[in-house]
């Protein structure tokens, strides 16, 4: 489709306190490929116009900041803001700055608030941007929090959709963006109480785990490399909502539990503090059984 018939969908991708693992994971996207995301119509008639994305963009310095600000003002209320990383808030956000204005370093916190206020919606990409994540872990030296918390504090009402994971699976990101491009913002029924799309985060890892049969018959791995369920090695699969066991990672090659590594629960708001030590058996919890999540849903719907 030539110019005019393709709608340019402006996107600003802002990085806060991040390790860049989220963007690196999105670069692993297989369908659509990264070429599809960058130059093709990612859904027919819609092209994602990446106005600001520090990891790939050609521009640097003031030129890059100008590109971001002019996109935000030209498409006020229309652009999608993607935030990768958490937001340092301690001491007015001095621990993280991007760019300068009038000779003053501009804190990440200021950018996120002003960019979020003018956006159509925010996609919080990765557990840091959703819930604070690793950099918000105790003692949280820089006061890192997720986008929703910053937004609430600043009385900004732009909707936030969470795409957690450390890193997030590329399909969770592209699926969420495609959902917005095809059908607008998801309704409340499509999201769970932690702001995630139920499409990807509707079931526990434990429900579809290929090692579930070992759990049911009580065969537990005692050390790494053993056959068996990884429960006693600290697996957080029974407490973690994500579709990793059926989606798999890196274009279907493998996944954490597939390689014998216990799930660390990286898509959960509890990650990492309430899920560490990572290699110690989860105790004093009633482990859920298949179907409990939906039974609970039905019960609460009836109430």
């Amino acid at each position: 489709m030539p110019k005019g018939q393709v709608q340019e969908y402006p996107v600003v991708w802002f990085q806060g306190a991040t390790c860049s693992g989220c963007v690196v994971s999105v670069l692993n996207s297989a369908s659509p490929t990264v070429r599809n995301l960058l130059v093709d119509q990612v859904v027919p008639g819609r092209h994602v116009s990446l106005k600001f994305m520090p990891t790939v963009m050609a521009a640097a310095g003031e030129m890059a900041i100008e590109a971001m600000e002019s996109a935000a003002s030209a498409s006020k209320g229309e652009y999608l803001l993607i935030v990768e990383g958490s937001v340092p808030t301690k001491q007015n956000g001095i621990y993280g700055a991007v760019g300068e204005k009038d000779g003053r370093e501009v804190p990440i916190m200021e950018w996120v608030i002003s960019l979020a206020a003018d956006a159509l919606a925010v996609v919080a990409l990765g557990t840091c941007a959703c819930y604070g994540g690793i950099f918000g872990a105790r003692p949280n030296p820089t006061g890192c929090v997720g986008v929703s918390d910053v937004r609430a504090e600043a009385h900004v009402s732009t909707p936030v959709i969470n795409v957690p994971g450390c890193p997030p699976h590329p399909d969770w990101f592209t699926g969420t963006v495609a959902r917005i491009l095809l059908g607008g913002l998801p309704s409340e029924e499509e999201l769970d109480e932690d702001g995630r799309l139920l499409t990807f985060f509707g079931k526990l890892i434990h429900e579809h785990c290929p090692r579930r049969a070992y759990f049911d018959e009580g065969k537990f791995a005692k050390r790494f490399g053993d056959e068996g369920c990884l429960h006693e090695l600290g697996c957080k699969g029974p407490l973690t909502y994500a579709d990793c066991p059926i989606r798999l990672w890196n274009n279907g090659q493998n996944w954490c539990i597939g390689s014998g590594g216990p799930c660390a629960g990286c898509t959960q708001p509890e990650f990492p503090d309430l899920f560490s030590p990572f290699y110690v058996k989860v105790s004093d919890v009633d482990l859920p059984v298949i179907g409990e999540y939906w039974a609970e849903k039905e019960r609460s719907a009836q109430e």
Partner: peptide
């Protein structure tokens, strides 16, 4: 221009957790 304090976050934790947490220093070379 960014300070995150990841080594302070490591203090008081199970030593084995360092292997998971230090990967989050960098997502390009975890």
């Amino acid at each position: 221009m960014l300070f995150r304090g990841i080594e302070l976050i490591l203090q008081g934790r199970d030593p084995r957790d360092a292997n998971r947490i230090t990967q989050r220093i960098c997502g390009v070379c975890p």
